[in-house]
Amino acid sequence: MKKVGILVFVGALSLGSNAFSQTGGSTNTKPTVVFVHGLWADGSSWSKVINPLVDKGYKVISVQNPTTSLADDVTATTRAIDRADGDVILVGHSWGGSVITEAGADPRVKALVYIAAFAPDKGETAGSLAESVAPTILGGFVQNANGYLTLSREGVAKGFAGDLTPKEQDVVYAVQQPASKSVFGDVGVNAAWRTKPSWYVVASEDNAINPELEKRMAQRANAKTTILKSSHVAMLSKPNEVLDVILDAATSVSK
């Protein structure tokens, strides 16, 4: 059986350390799952779904995006695709959706999974998409330091991860990666969801990306859609449900 790689993105949150990678042994024929985080996050935002996937025999890679530009994040994601050594599924959260939409044009990418994520068309930006609907409260908690943006601790609690425990919110706040404000205007040249099968998790209680925008992007991409009663960080607050979506994509591509 051909070795398959799965790439999982993006999005606006991640907790933890450097990239995770695990192998299930030399006889492992299951796809690789590669996670791509978003803004104000790091690769550990996928921590609650990494171990269950490894336990099921999947290899996992979690990208560490610099969040300095779309091009820089796509480069980091492409390195993960290369590590996967086979076909790939990209799964991204939040801003990570923009990254997988661009990087997903790689012929090795066979499917996309969006978790409360941007899914721009050619010529669209994260900023233009956000401005196309009613604003969320998140913008009121963004702090600017020399052109790089972070979230306040109150912003994590109210606009980003409201359904996590205070201790979990402390970790989200502590590990966030400062983001260049320029990323909101970066324009991609690819819209991989137009040619690749897609899955989408809508977070109905999202205060970072308007849930109505999420639904609209999911419908436009003809994505298999799951709606969860969740904050922006569905992979942390509803990990079992998000895991089911990832596994559905993995098994569908593997058939």
Results as ranks from 00 to 15, higher is better:
P178M: 08
L151Q: 04
F141S: 01
G123L: 12
D170R: 01
T136H: 06
P166W: 04
V183I: 15
F20E: 11
K238L: 01
V113C: 04
T226C: 01
V33P: 03
W46P: 03
G43D: 13
E168K: 02
K48Q: 14
S26Q: 10
V54F: 02
S230H: 01
Q143N: 07
G140C: 08
T68P: 00
G140Y: 04
G96F: 01
A249G: 10
F35C: 15
V113N: 03
A126C: 14
N144P: 03
F118D: 10
F35R: 11
T67R: 06
I81L: 12
L149R: 02
T225E: 00
T32E: 05
W193R: 12
V253H: 03
Q143I: 10
L53G: 12
T78Q: 15
A71V: 14
G104M: 06
S231H: 10
P52Y: 11
G127E: 03
L228Q: 05
K56C: 04
S182E: 09
D248N: 07
S254I: 10
F118K: 07
I115W: 10
A157F: 04
A130G: 05
V133D: 04
V4N: 02
V36M: 13
P120C: 04
F20G: 03
R220T: 09
N18G: 15
V54N: 08
N210M: 09
R108Q: 13
Q219M: 07
S252L: 08
G57R: 07
S47T: 05
Q64A: 14
S26K: 13
F141R: 02
A130D: 01
K3T: 10
T101V: 05
L129R: 05
G86H: 05
A191H: 12
Q169R: 10
S69L: 09
N144I: 12
P52S: 07
G25M: 07
T225F: 00
R220P: 00
A249W: 10
I209V: 14
I6C: 14
V133E: 11
A41G: 15
G127Y: 08
V187D: 05
T165N: 08
S252W: 07
L138C: 00
A161I: 05
A130Q: 09
V54P: 00
Y173M: 01
P239N: 07
D206R: 03
A221H: 07
G5W: 05
G43N: 15
R83F: 13
D186G: 08
N190Q: 14
D248Y: 04
K48I: 00
K2G: 01
V33I: 14
T29K: 12
K196Q: 09
V113M: 03
A191T: 11
K56Q: 15
K3E: 10
K3I: 10
P166Y: 11
V60R: 12
